[in-house]
Amino acid sequence: MPVGPRTVNDVMTHRVVAVRGGAEFKDIVRTMRRWHVSAVPVVDDGQRVLGVVSEADLLPKEEYRDADADPPARAPRSAKARGATAEQVMTGPAVTVHADASLARAARTMAHAGVKRLPVVDGEGVLRGIVSRSDLLKVFLRDDEDIEAEVRHEIDTHLLALPVRPIDVRVRNGVVTLTGHVRDTTLLPVLTRLVRTVEGVVEVECDLEGPLRRPNLDPDLGDAPDAGAR
């Protein structure tokens, strides 16, 4: 049955571990190890997200551990190497997303920020969950039958005047193939974009053609007039 566009809330992890800004360095490492995660959000006393601490934020501590390798005072990683609490080593402010955001929006946010996960917050910035790259890819696990049903639903709902006859929709491994005849071929790009918005669609192969023409049995007379013409 068609489910419509999914949101971050549908795929995110609702139970998420976080640390306070004053959490000590070793406690952060222990928390990551205990929960088998590579990053944790940093929150204040009201559970509002301040930033994110990842393994990359902690690594400068080991990188500059040798006495002969003190970080330059102005080096970007210097503060993290000297930091002792979550607030001192975190990356902030955090790049976040709302639970009602589309998966496409979350994916674009991740790509632009160059991050692997996003804390999910409400309108007040309070932590509600976390969404990762692997979460966003869950939509590609949808069965072909589910995708086909939703594609048909979208076509029937939004493009009622387009087909001359029902469009044949076939889905194989997420690739949607459309065949048949339509009244107006100028709308095919619109149809293709509509199908691509269905979650789980990998690609769209649009093999639709223009309307069928009745054969002209007497070329000298030109095309036959419409039945209602006088």
Rank of each mutant, 00 (worst) to 15 (best):
M1W: 07
P2K: 06
M12Q: 01
T13V: 09
T13I: 11
R15T: 14
V17E: 10
G22W: 04
K26N: 15
T31K: 14
R34T: 15
R34I: 06
W35G: 00
H36E: 12
H36K: 15
V42R: 00
V52E: 02
A56F: 12
D57K: 02
L58A: 04
D66M: 10
D66P: 11
P71A: 12
P71T: 01
R74Q: 10
R77G: 11
S78Q: 09
S78N: 09
A79R: 14
A81C: 08
A81D: 06
V89P: 01
M90I: 08
A94Y: 00
V97K: 00
A99V: 09
A104K: 13
M110Q: 08
A111H: 14
H112G: 12
A113S: 11
G114R: 05
V115M: 04
K116Y: 03
G125T: 03
G129W: 00
I130T: 03
S134Y: 07
L137W: 13
K138G: 04
F140A: 06
A149P: 10
A149L: 13
E150G: 06
T157G: 11
L162R: 04
P163L: 08
P163T: 09
V164T: 14
R165G: 09
P166Q: 03
V171C: 06
N173D: 15
T179S: 14
T186H: 13
V204T: 08
L208Y: 05
R213K: 12
N216S: 10
D218S: 13
D220L: 11
D223T: 14
D223M: 07
A229R: 15
